[in-house]
């Protein structure tokens, strides 16, 4: 564990808490993409199947359980409890355009052709693009609530911090995982446009709106 990974994990946890808080406090999931959230639940489910097969640390197990539980908690709030507030008209990104190619790629490019490993690879690839329906939704409506933009910033920062973690691990532990690194870079790049808007607008106290 290094400082980059720890802050990355904390940013990830913070993002999830921010999203749950936004939905709970405003009693609304307006502006949140249910499709991105469904894919995140799928990401955690397929990646953390190793909870059953091997134990790493109490920290690892606890965080994994929190991530899985919170992703399904978010789905529960969005699709059951506050279903009426779900903005499905603006959540029109086609999930199959991401899930199908990602599934295909995880069969073709992986570290080991075994079920758990393919599912892990699938989750890594899917995570890298799972935010697209959310970003697409913001581009359709042209704006995002400030709390939603904080959520996205924390969520995007997490993988950027993981890149620093991988650089650190490469130099100090001789560890390198090409699949995770490439997917992590793709994931971070997808947020760049959002990061720019967030820093130039939200940090100056304005609402996140897209240029017309």
């Amino acid at each position: 564990m290094n400082v980059f990974r720890l802050t990355g994990d904390i940013a990830h946890l913070l993002a999830i808490i921010l999203l749950l808080m936004k939905i709970w406090k405003t009693r609304s999931c307006a502006g949140v993409s249910g499709k991105s959230q469904m894919m995140f639940a799928l990401v955690f489910t397929t990646r953390y199947l190793d909870l059953i097969t091997n134990f790493i640390s109490l920290y690892n197990t606890t965080m994994k359980m929190i991530f899985i539980a919170s992703s399904y908690g978010t789905l529960y709030l969005m699709f059951l409890k506050f279903r009426a507030t779900y903005d499905s008209n603006h959540d029109t990104f086609r999930m199959e355009f991401l899930v199908v190619p990602v599934a295909g790629l995880s069969f073709l490019v992986n570290h080991d052709f075994s079920p758990l490993e393919i599912l892990w690879t699938f989750s890594i690839y899917l995570e890298s693009v799972a935010i697209l329906p959310q970003l697409f939704m913001i581009s359709k409506t042209g704006e995002a609530e400030t709390i939603t933009s904080h959520y996205l910033f924390a969520l995007g920062s997490y993988r950027a911090l993981y890149i620093l973690n991988w650089v650190y691990r490469f130099y100090f532990e001789g560890f390198f995982d090409l699949i995770a690194v490439v997917a992590g870079c793709v994931q971070t790049v997808l947020y760049c446009d959002f990061f720019y808007l967030y820093i130039t607008k939200v940090w100056k106290g304005k609402k996140l709106t897209l240029p017309a």
Binding site: D9, H12, S57, N60, K64, D112, N165, F175, D177, A180
Partner: peptide, 10 residues
């Protein structure tokens, strides 16, 4: 190589 170590990441 070293793939197994990634399993300690989240």
């Amino acid at each position: 190589a070293c793939r197994k170590k990634a399993k300690d990441e989240l």
